[in-house]
Design a protein around this nucleic acid. Sequence first.
DNA 1: GAACTGTATACTGTAGGCAGTCGACGACAG
DNA 2: CTGTCGTCGACTGCCTACAGTATACAGTTC
Lengths: 250, 250
Amino acid sequence: MVRSELANSGAAPKIPRPATLRESVFEAILELIINGSLSPGRHLAESDLAELLGVSRQPVREALQMLNGEGWVDLRPGHGAFVHAPTVQEADQLLAVRSLLETESARLAALNREADGVARLRELCARGLSALEADDIETSVAANSDLHALVTELSGNKVLAELASQVSRRVRWYHTPVARQRGRASWEEHELLIDAIEAGDETRAAQIMRDHTEHTRSSYLDQRTSQPDGADEPEAPATRRRRPRSLSPS
Amino acid sequence: MVRSELANSGAAPKIPRPATLRESVFEAILELIINGSLSPGRHLAESDLAELLGVSRQPVREALQMLNGEGWVDLRPGHGAFVHAPTVQEADQLLAVRSLLETESARLAALNREADGVARLRELCARGLSALEADDIETSVAANSDLHALVTELSGNKVLAELASQVSRRVRWYHTPVARQRGRASWEEHELLIDAIEAGDETRAAQIMRDHTEHTRSSYLDQRTSQPDGADEPEAPATRRRRPRSLSPS
DNA sequence: GAACTGTATACTGTAGGCAGTCGACGACAG
DNA sequence: CTGTCGTCGACTGCCTACAGTATACAGTTC
């Protein structure tokens, strides 16, 4: 009796299942990659990471495989895992594909013209703008991301949204600095986009999104070619690095 | 002296590394899924697959994770792995995204206009046509696949090609029957496409590819809606199925 | 000094084991 | 008969161990 009442009441949320270790390790390693602690090309020894994170090799191995699936890490059989080292060309291609996917998403979102979704877009836009004016760059960048993700969601094509999410995640560290620079211009474009979506003008929505994302792409390229720092030079294939023999376990 | 000369000669190919077990297991399970031996929604117990394939659970576990990354398998922590059960809607979305990616690939291929690539396309087209005339459906279907893959390669955008490959892999079991039905019409469209690519006519190449892949999509939908077999009804979430107690180990 | 060989061991891929969770099924009460 | 509870064991997540491979380094030869 008591149990059936609880099940029906909807008042008691289910106890959330604790995150598996592999998920936690995934997030931990990803954070290390994104914040630069683990630099591109670096060899990732399972046992080192396991020791660092206080787990066994197994969840590390699984996390590395997940990271590989999302393009953050390259797995080479027999050699192990290496932080993915993107080239300028690859970044360019990723940004081009992102543009393609988000342009189509915007077009479909305008076709679908979902009133609730448009309201949510406007809310995100307002949040981004006020964060910008408060000089809160971090919130502004996050709102930017969320807005783009919502557009792909409003496309109504889940496969498209998933691919866009996958690509978006990988370009994160390319387009964030650009978004910072563009500031207000970026948000004005978002507003125009939302207008077009609301109006159901698929051609216009697509055109705005194409221009918007294409601008990010060319700005990134400008940035990279004006600051040649050799970080993207073709390097010799990284190998797994055995810890030097004389290194004492510290 | 001897060693440095051997490294430079390029005459001796390197011994290819044997595939890891996880890769072999991945392919084996994928084949079982594609040929229907492992039906959508089915629970995949690591230990059963390990016994079936004669390996330990570990490479099975890793293969399942790879399969999850490509959308063939759903992993639920605590419950295990289940063959992904696509809905008609999802198939539709996949085919739509495939159309988007391949249309853009064709456009870029026409922009790039690579003579060697065009020659390879024509060769594949000839192979497909002659296989069709010899009633060799299998070779015809394979050539069809290869031709599409080559177009994405000729786009020059590796990220795009990879995503297209990922999507193409997943739609394989949707569009193959359609390709069978369309036969000659399909190959005529391929010829027109190649002409457009060779001529560097990006607009025309894109249009032909869009129509071609869109045709596959609508043919698939026609087929599914004309044969409602309930296979795509929303089902209760599959759970991990403990082997019944009375089942004797056979 | 450069090139090569041999050795030691760090590291990867895989196998096997353990503890906790989940689901089938039997027992029992109403 | 239906519903509930408890038991059992299949199964998952993670740990540990082993075998083979890759790399660092020392020693030797030219």
